[in-house]
């Protein structure tokens, strides 16, 4: 029995995805000299950061069998709102950060209420909040494009937290704070998913909601929590986005959720709920980001990114469907 499980670990999607990540990196590096550069790696990691945060957050609603489509436009909306306070109104940076994160949390809770209490289909409820945050972002920022303080500027300290490196080379003084922060977040959320009630019930809701309810679990509260986590992480991601992109434009953000959700599903989160892992999600995001970053280096223009991401997502779900069909036939 035990032996069977360890073999199962080898056949685990996480492991396969890890191999794909390595292969992709090697192949792209082999083809393109520029891709091999350290600066490319840094650039890629920096622009992956916010997607990682989004993906970790959206893993929770996905595991409940739902989805959160509002994270992309939401992230922009929170970043705009926080940034507006800092840049246009002169509040200290930390106020902007806190407001962005709280705003995210709030929208997350609203999503949770729409889905868990009002019983709207998850894709529809969050599609509505997706559009609403898009409008809200422009309104909150007075339709300004918002440049958060730069890394070197006053109040730009938050860059250190959300960038993997400072990008200026490998000086001993440049601790990769971002890596450490990210590692802490991944470990923390893995713990939450696997060893706390929030995680346990998130999985249980995705697997069999009615049975969970009949077991005396306050399903609504935990269902809302899953969406709240997603919103909270979209709030955090908005800070990472501000750190990576010099100016946040209102009206953007649609499509970013695809990278995050696609990453999670490539990483083994079941699109019908009940299964998934934080590590898998992280690796899945790397697959998608490698493809996106790598394509221009092998001669495809950047617009191919969206097409490829879509195809990868569909492909990942198809593999899942094939697996399920085979299991159904065997069982």
């Amino acid at each position: 029995m035990k032996k069977k499980k360890s073999i199962g670990l080898l056949a685990d999607q996480k492991f396969i995805v890890l191999i794909i990540v390595v292969i992709l990196y090697v192949v792209f590096s082999f083809i393109s000299k520029d891709f091999r550069k350290y600066s490319t790696l840094v650039m890629m990691l920096d622009s992956t950061y916010y997607i990682l945060l989004l993906a970790i957050g959206v893993t929770f609603p996905l595991i409940t069998g739902g989805v959160d489509l509002s994270i992309g436009t939401g992230m922009i909306c929170y970043g705009l709102t926080g940034g507006y306070l800092v840049v246009q109104r002169g509040y200290p940076t930390w106020v902007g950060l806190v407001v962005a994160v709280l705003f995210g949390l709030l929208v997350g809770i609203l999503n949770g209420i729409l889905i868990a209490v009002m019983d709207l289909p998850p894709f529809l409820g969050t599609l509505c909040t997706c559009m609403m945050t898009r409008g809200l972002g422009s309104i909150c920022a007075n339709s300004f494009a918002i440049p958060w303080p730069g890394a070197k500027a006053e109040g730009g300290w938050f860059h250190n937290i959300f960038k993997l490196t400072m990008g200026a080379g490998r000086k001993a003084m440049n601790y990769p704070v971002g890596v450490i922060v990210l590692a802490v977040i991944v470990i923390l959320m893995s713990f939450v998913l696997n060893h706390t009630r929030v995680g346990r019930y998130t999985i249980a809701i995705g697997s069999n909601k009615e049975a969970t309810r009949l077991s005396g679990v306050n399903v609504r509260a935990y269902h809302i929590t899953a969406y709240a986590i997603s919103g909270l992480f979209a709030g955090l991601a908005s800070l990472a986005y501000a750190a990576a992109i010099p100016t946040i434009q209102p009206g953007t953000g649609a499509g970013i959720e695809l990278d995050a959700i696609g990453g999670a599903i490539v990483g083994g989160v079941s699109p019908t709920g009940g299964a998934g892992s934080i590590i898998g999600t992280m690796l899945g995001v790397f697959v998608i980001q490698l493809l996106k970053t790598g394509l221009p280096y092998i001669g495809l223009e950047a617009n191919w990114q969206q097409i490829v991401t879509g195809l990868v997502l569909i492909g990942a779900v198809m593999i899942d469907v094939i697996k399920q069909r085979r299991e159904a036939l065997e069982g």
């Binding site: 713990f191 009630r197 346990r200 697997s207 069999n208 969970t212």
Partner: peptide, 26 residues
């Protein structure tokens, strides 16, 4: 009708809703 959460283990199913805890940890 069986009220089982298929993706959880047997033990996790038996104690669902009243997991023994150590702090935050189940």
């Amino acid at each position: 009708e069986l009220n089982m959460v298929g993706d959880l283990t047997v033990a996790q199913n038996i104690f669902i809703g009243r997991e023994p805890r150590k702090g935050f940890r189940i």
